[in-house]
Design a protein around this nucleic acid. Sequence first.
DNA 1: GCCCGGCGTGAGGAATGCGTGAGGATCGGC
DNA 2: GCCGATCCTCACGCATTCCTCACGCCGGGC
Lengths: 229, 229
Amino acid sequence: MRILIADDDPQILRALSITLGAHGYDVVTARDGREAIGAAASEHPDLIVLDLGMPELTGIEVIEAVRGWSTLPILVVSGRHDSGDKVDALDAGADDYVTKPFAVDELLARVRALTRRAAPTLDSPTARLGAVTIDLAAHLVLRRTSDTEEVVRLTPTEWRMLEVFAKNPNRLVTRELLLTEVWGPQYTTDTGYLRLYVSQLRKKLEPDAARPRYLLTEAGMGYRFSPDE
Amino acid sequence: MRILIADDDPQILRALSITLGAHGYDVVTARDGREAIGAAASEHPDLIVLDLGMPELTGIEVIEAVRGWSTLPILVVSGRHDSGDKVDALDAGADDYVTKPFAVDELLARVRALTRRAAPTLDSPTARLGAVTIDLAAHLVLRRTSDTEEVVRLTPTEWRMLEVFAKNPNRLVTRELLLTEVWGPQYTTDTGYLRLYVSQLRKKLEPDAARPRYLLTEAGMGYRFSPDE
DNA sequence: GCCCGGCGTGAGGAATGCGTGAGGATCGGC
DNA sequence: GCCGATCCTCACGCATTCCTCACGCCGGGC
């Protein structure tokens, strides 16, 4: 998830970059309006945090320029509290408007709300595993075989488990996390369930269940889910 | 464009209704949390303006209940300025959060921004299922038999159910979504209704009701509607 | 090479969920 | 108040899912 931060105040720019970066976002920055438009086009961000009071171009002009070719979410940050300014920015195409000074956790929550809302508009967030495609939102798993695409059916327990993996790609997923998320916090020692259901997931998702490529065992600790790219 | 306003203060409720009504919106109101959830399900609003401090249910509970089956935009209006409250509401699924007192023109601009963002909800006019054609807009289902086309008669409940399926092709349609859309949010555990009406829909739509091809069961979760292409 | 703990997988029974017929309750039109 | 259509309740047989148990495999320590 990549965020473009556009602000002419280097101090705010730095603070926001560090905060958003610490929360797992990939951060790109711009110092004036022209740079912001360029970065919005070339860096393919998933969201823009835009300061209104920048040199070169007004914030409204930046919004209108970006809206000329893109629908990506724009969160405006501004020192101006006047409701007229807010109306202008929102009607120009901004999705949200936060006034300075703002609480960082509120800004983060608004970023989450915007990315959540905008996500289905772009592409449904799918994970690819070779011939298998996972669409979490649609609860759909497809498997390409030679020339046809067939639906892979998962049981409720298999789904809950796959969801935990899909939300933690490329990271170690501990046995404890899996057990509490799928079976409940009182089952944290029943590792036999994990062996059973991981085995079934592999049969349905892996090209060769005996030699797993995407759902890997980390002996003694848990599992790691590594989708393509 | 229909808006549901949920607030326990009759004065605010009245003022908002008049303001939004004057700007061309169709307004529906609710005075407490339970009423809000019911109206969200039965009135099919395009947006909810939700006061957090209502009796019966907390605002967060209302948000979570609605998010259980719907993605319609929720704009929270609240007297609480604390950033923790904002984070909780946004993370529960709200799209925006405005603190009282607010400028009416700002609220209107935020309503426009949210409806603009949520707008791309185009539903497909027709679906094909082998010999059966479903025309949602015309409220018509046709079945080709050898040489003639006959109209398939559906009861109101069957039709409401088919609409939910037709609007979510190839996706898992949860039991909860079906029950709230067809019977109301207080019936979310009556899965017996689903079994009965799915059975009747299959008799009318499937070539062989005993071996369904288009209306598939996902045991423990819901159903999946897969029309041809 | 042998033991041993952790892991993978098959089989089968228990528990849960699903499909469907029949019949009674309810509602609206006349 | 009658009648048909629709909706709901109930019951039973079948299908799916979940869990238990058993056994075989693999790699590390000795």
